Amino acid sequence: MNRRTLILSGAATLILPAAPALAKNVNYVPGLLKKHQAAGDTVFLDFKASWCGTCRAQGRVLKSLKEENAAYAENIVFIDVDWDTYGNSVMADRLKIPRRSTLVAFKGKQEIGRIVADTSKRNIKKLVDAALSAATA
C-alpha cells in the first residue's frame, strides 16, 4: 500500500458517518414474553421459520425500517419466535397465532396489533410505528 492510499483511506474513515448500531433481535425462550410484559415493555414478536419466504421478506422490511429509524430498536424489544420450535407452544396457542409469518406488537399485556403473512412495507411500518407510539407515550 502506498502512502497516498493509506492517507486517503484513513481520511475516508474519519469523514464517513458511523453507521448506527442496530440492536439484535432476541431469540424467544419460554418465559421471555411474560418477563417483558410484566415489566411493561413494548414487545414486537416475529413468528418465523428459516425456510419461509414470506418470513424472510418481512425480515428484510423490518431490518430496513430499523436502519431508517433508530428509535425502533431503542424503544421496542424485538423477539424472534422460531415457528418450528414454538409454533405449537402454549404461548402461541394462548396468543392465537395462526401461522408463521405473524407479527404481533404488545405494550405490556395489551396487544397493539398484528399482521399475518403481509410483506407490505407500509403495513409493517404502521404496526412498528404503533408500537413505537405506545413505547414512548
Results as ranks from 00 to 15, higher is better:
residue 111 E to A: 12
residue 52 C to F: 02
residue 24 K to A: 14
residue 65 L to A: 10
residue 112 I to A: 05
residue 39 A to M: 08
residue 70 A to F: 01
residue 43 V to C: 10
residue 19 A to Y: 13
residue 46 D to K: 06
residue 12 A to M: 14
residue 91 M to L: 02
residue 124 I to F: 04
residue 95 L to N: 04
residue 43 V to A: 09
residue 119 T to K: 04
residue 51 W to K: 06
residue 75 N to F: 06
residue 62 L to Q: 09
residue 12 A to C: 13
residue 33 L to V: 03
residue 132 L to K: 07
residue 6 L to G: 04
residue 129 D to Y: 02
residue 69 N to F: 01
residue 111 E to L: 06
residue 115 I to P: 03
residue 94 R to L: 06
residue 77 V to Y: 10
residue 103 L to E: 01
residue 64 S to Y: 08
residue 65 L to M: 08
residue 126 K to A: 14
residue 18 A to W: 15
residue 109 K to D: 13
residue 22 L to Q: 15
residue 79 I to M: 02
residue 97 I to P: 10
residue 3 R to L: 14
residue 2 N to H: 10
residue 137 A to Q: 06
residue 133 S to I: 15
residue 16 L to K: 11
residue 22 L to F: 09
residue 95 L to F: 12
residue 76 I to W: 08
residue 19 A to R: 03
residue 6 L to S: 11
residue 62 L to P: 05
residue 37 Q to K: 10
residue 115 I to D: 06
residue 92 A to H: 01
residue 109 K to V: 08
residue 100 R to P: 00
residue 101 S to G: 02
residue 65 L to C: 03
residue 9 S to D: 13
residue 123 N to L: 06
residue 127 L to Y: 07
residue 87 G to D: 03
residue 79 I to P: 02
residue 99 R to K: 08
residue 99 R to G: 09
residue 9 S to P: 00
residue 65 L to F: 03
residue 104 V to H: 04
residue 4 R to I: 14
residue 106 F to H: 01
residue 1 M to E: 12
residue 3 R to M: 13
residue 6 L to F: 13
residue 31 G to E: 01
residue 78 F to V: 01
residue 128 V to K: 05
residue 47 F to H: 06
residue 119 T to S: 04
residue 27 N to Q: 14
residue 130 A to S: 15
residue 98 P to T: 10
residue 40 G to E: 06
residue 28 Y to P: 03
residue 98 P to G: 07
residue 92 A to F: 00
residue 79 I to S: 04
residue 14 L to V: 12
residue 76 I to Y: 09
residue 79 I to V: 01
residue 132 L to T: 15
residue 77 V to G: 06
residue 112 I to D: 03
residue 70 A to G: 13
residue 74 E to P: 07
residue 52 C to I: 12
residue 21 A to D: 13
residue 11 A to Y: 09
residue 90 V to H: 02
residue 69 N to L: 03
residue 76 I to Q: 09
residue 68 E to V: 03
residue 30 P to C: 11
residue 41 D to H: 06
residue 77 V to W: 07
residue 80 D to P: 08
residue 23 A to G: 11
residue 88 N to P: 00
residue 120 S to L: 07
residue 120 S to C: 06
residue 61 V to G: 07
residue 70 A to E: 15
residue 30 P to H: 12
residue 23 A to Q: 09
residue 29 V to D: 05
residue 67 E to W: 06
residue 84 D to V: 06
residue 86 Y to G: 02
residue 124 I to H: 00
residue 16 L to E: 09
residue 24 K to L: 09
residue 26 V to W: 01
residue 49 A to D: 08
residue 136 T to M: 10
residue 105 A to N: 04
residue 120 S to K: 05
residue 15 I to C: 08
residue 64 S to Q: 15
residue 108 G to H: 09
residue 79 I to N: 00
residue 2 N to P: 09
residue 81 V to C: 05
residue 67 E to D: 07
residue 23 A to C: 02
residue 112 I to T: 14
residue 6 L to E: 14
residue 20 P to C: 12
residue 30 P to M: 10
residue 16 L to S: 12
residue 75 N to L: 04
residue 20 P to Y: 11
residue 117 A to S: 12
residue 59 G to P: 11
residue 50 S to Q: 11
residue 12 A to S: 13
residue 107 K to R: 09
residue 58 Q to S: 07
